[in-house]
C-alpha cells in the first residue's frame, strides 16, 4: 500500500519543530509500524537525509521504550497495543498518518519522536520499592499470598513505564503510572510497612516533576497498552489521603 506520513521533526530540545510530509510506497500489511518507519529511514539515508529518530528496543511490547502519538492517539489506534506491536494491516492504502512525540512538560523532546522520561525514574526513587537488603530473606513460602492478591499485584505491576498515560491526559498527569506502582506494592503483604509514606513521597515527587493533576478524564486508561485500570488511581488517592491524616511528622 501507499501512505502519506506527516512526521514531527525537531533537531534538538531547543530547536523549533514541525510536521514534515513523506510519501511511502510498497508498504506490506505484514510489517510492523516500526518496520514501516525503518523502511522510510533507510530510504531517507540513501538520499543522504537524516532519518527520523524514534525510540524502541524490544519490539515486543514489554520494554516500554517505544512511544509516539499516531493519528492523535498514543501508540496508535489499537487498544492495548504498543506502537511496536501495531501492524500495518490496521491501515489501508492511501491513508494519511500523523506521527508525533509524547507531549508533556515533564517529558521534554530530545529529538524528533524521542522524549526524555527520566522523571519516571525519579518518582520510583522516592519510594517505588520495598526497603529490603539482599541476601537473607526468609523462605518464599513463609508469607502465603492468596492467588487473588498475587494476581491483583501483577495486574498493576504489568505497567511498562511507557508514558502513554501522560501523553493521553489533557493535564499531562502521571497518575496512572504512579498509581500502578503504588498499587502493586500495596496489594502485597511485603508492601504494607511503607505503604503510606510511599504514597505520599511518590505523589509529591510526581508534582515536583511538573506533571499535571488528575481531573478524571480517564484518557490514560484508554491509552494504556497494558490495560492498567484507573481504579488504581482511586486506591492511591485513598492511601495518600490516609497518609495525610495519620502523618505524625
Amino acid at each position: 500500500m501507499r501512505l502519506r506520513l506527516h512526521i514531527w521533526r525537531q533537531a534538538g530540545p531547543d530547536a523549533q519543530g514541525m510536521l514534515k510530509t513523506y510519501d511511502l510506497d510498497n508498504v506490506s500489511e505484514h510489517m510492523s509500524f516500526l518496520e514501516m518507519l525503518d523502511v522510510l529511514n533507510e530510504q531517507l539515508m540513501e538520499k543522504g537525509e537524516e532519518p527520523v529518530a524514534f525510540d524502541h528496543d524490544c519490539r515486543e511490547g514489554i520494554c516500554g521504550t517505544c512511544g509516539m502519538v499516531i493519528n492523535g492517539r498514543p501508540h496508535g489506534p489499537l487498544a492495548r497495543t504498543t506502537a511496536c506491536q501495531l501492524h500495518m494491516r490496521t491501515f489501508k492504502d492511501g491513508d494519511e498518518i500523523y506521527i508525533e512525540p509524547w507531549r508533556a512538560t515533564a517529558f521534554p523532546v530530545v529529538r524528533d519522536l524521542v522524549v526524555d522520561r527520566s522523571s519516571f525514574d525519579r518518582i520510583i526513587q522516592k519510594g517505588g520499592f520495598i526497603s529490603v537488603n539482599t541476601g537473607n530473606a526468609q523462605d518464599g513460602n513463609a508469607i502465603p499470598i492468596s492467588k487473588t492478591d498475587a494476581d491483583r499485584a501483577m495486574d498493576a505491576a504489568a505497567c511498562i513505564g511507557c508514558g502513554a498515560c501522560v501523553a493521553a491526559c489533557p493535564n499531562a498527569s502521571a497518575m496512572l503510572f504512579t498509581a500502578a506502582k503504588i498499587g502493586h506494592l500495596a496489594s502485597l503483604p511485603q508492601g504494607q510497612a511503607e505503604r503510606f509514606s510511599r504514597a505520599t513521597n511518590m505523589v509529591l515527587q510526581m508534582d515536583a516533576e511538573g506533571f499535571g493533576s488528575c481531573t478524571n478524564h480517564y484518557e490514560c486508561e484508554a491509552a494504556c497498552p497494558k490495560g492498567i485500570s484507573a481504579e488504581w488511581i482511586a486506591a492511591m488517592n485513598r492511601d495518600f489521603a490516609k497518609a495525610a491524616i495519620t502523618s505524625r511528622d
Binding site: 520499592f129 520495598i130 529490603v132 539482599t134 541476601g135 530473606a137 526468609q138 523462605d139 518464599g140 508469607i143 498475587a150 494476581d151 499485584a153 501483577m154 505491576a157 502493586h184 506494592l185 496489594s187 502485597l188 511485603q190 508492601g191
Partner: peptide, 10 residues
C-alpha cells in the same frame, strides 16, 4: 526468597 521479599508478584 530475595525476589519475593522485594515484592515480585510470582
Amino acid at each position: 526468597d530475595q525476589c519475593v521479599a522485594q515484592g515480585v508478584p510470582f
